[in-house]
Design a protein around this nucleic acid. Sequence first.
RNA 1: GUGGGUAUAGCUUAGUUGGUUAAAGCGCCAGUUUGUGGCACUGGAGACCGUCGGUUCGAAUCCGACUAUCCACCCCA
Length: 432
Amino acid sequence: MAEIIRKIKGTEDIMPKESYKWQFLEGLMRSQAESYGFKEVRTPVFEQTSLFARGVGETTDVVQKEMYTFSTKGDDSITLRPEGTAGAARAFLEHSLHNDGLPSKQYYLTTCYRYEKPQAGRQREFHQFGIEVFGTGNPCADAEVICLINGLFNVLGLEKIRLEINSIGCPKCRSEYHRVLKEYFSKYKDKLCDTCLGRLERNPMRIIDCKSPVCSEIGKDAPKMLDYLCPECKNHFEKVKSYLDIAGIKYEINPSIVRGLDYYTKTVFEFVSDNIGAQGTVCGGGRYDGLIEELGGQSTPSLGCAMGIERLLILMEESGVEIPQPENADLYIASMGDDAQLRAFAICEEARKSGFSTQCDIVGRGLRPQMKYADKIGAKFSMVLGDSELEQGKAEIKNMETGEKKEVLLDDFTAGFSEIMIDYQTKQIADL
RNA sequence: GUGGGUAUAGCUUAGUUGGUUAAAGCGCCAGUUUGUGGCACUGGAGACCGUCGGUUCGAAUCCGACUAUCCACCCCA
């Protein structure tokens, strides 16, 4: 036997047993986004490498060591998208969407690719639900994005998720803050851990977040970004909070939230859970007022966020939130003999055209295995077709749960079966 | 990229101090009167015990390397 080819490390097959969960979530996400006036955008899986280098930021880990980058035959460098915002922003610019009126509100459900070591809640190919709002700097938009996501968690019945928000300011106030931070931590150079010594140059804000007891102790008294916000950023943050307050959304201010992508400014936020293993962030995002300009457009303040669907599923599993199973087949038609199989096939097609989910034997099995199959797929009703049914032109429809049988005329099958289904559904509703 | 755990049928596992045909349950397929599924019974398919090498008369079992996978760090959704 030939060797079985296996899936690539860090990728996951979503099998029929699981796919209904994805469909359910995707459906909810779409309707939630659409109720806020967002429209779907679909951009290519790959883009010019420079889009991410410029958009996400040359110095970020994502760009430096996690991208799937290839050369094409024409020697272009292309990259599988490591996140969704850059592509959406590029498309916004390329199609001059500002001419359609601002704000431009979009959502996407896509795969993203990062070359990382897989672990709980982290794959190399993963799925994101993301939303973007282009063309508004108003704090109300920040709150709207957060409300949309928060509403989604509420609908799903996920309660143990906390919203953490912060403001990392604009480039002006942030550089001032970095200077002050560096100054502060430099005093403890001999005590900081090795990773933090590196962070001191690259991103001093990360030190505050360090897990080492020594660093975090030092970090406790470090200057806070929020104290160094310029008046405009401070005002913006205050307004965001008051919108959240009036919407009744609970949040914690977490001064150590620092998003790892360069484009973020002002508001940043994360929806965090303790039930996903080490990867606690289910949804992360924030404002990126400089991104569109960075990509060659006019100044267009914008913001967005993205949710990891794999992480969401883990979280739902851990929280015991059940996803409704898909409906079983309405009818299974068993048959004995060639003539009956032929007729069963025809009736099956007829029933499907009337909107019933119907199956018949396509293997050529005996009656007993067919009935077993009908049971296994959870068919609501079954019907057996043999020579005598064909002769008499009628057959019995059996309720698989109660065993109760009712006769239908084969020539008028759809009408007969519809009646049975209506009865059945009426009873179902009555039971509720 | 750095650490740690794990590796026996599709799944969950057993396999006793190394001893010859590697077990079981679930699942799958078929049968137990071609005329009705769930229960029961019978049978069948399905594993070169992750791979390669070493120790040994003999390895699923001991040792080593590799690979895969999981978990964690880093970072992120």
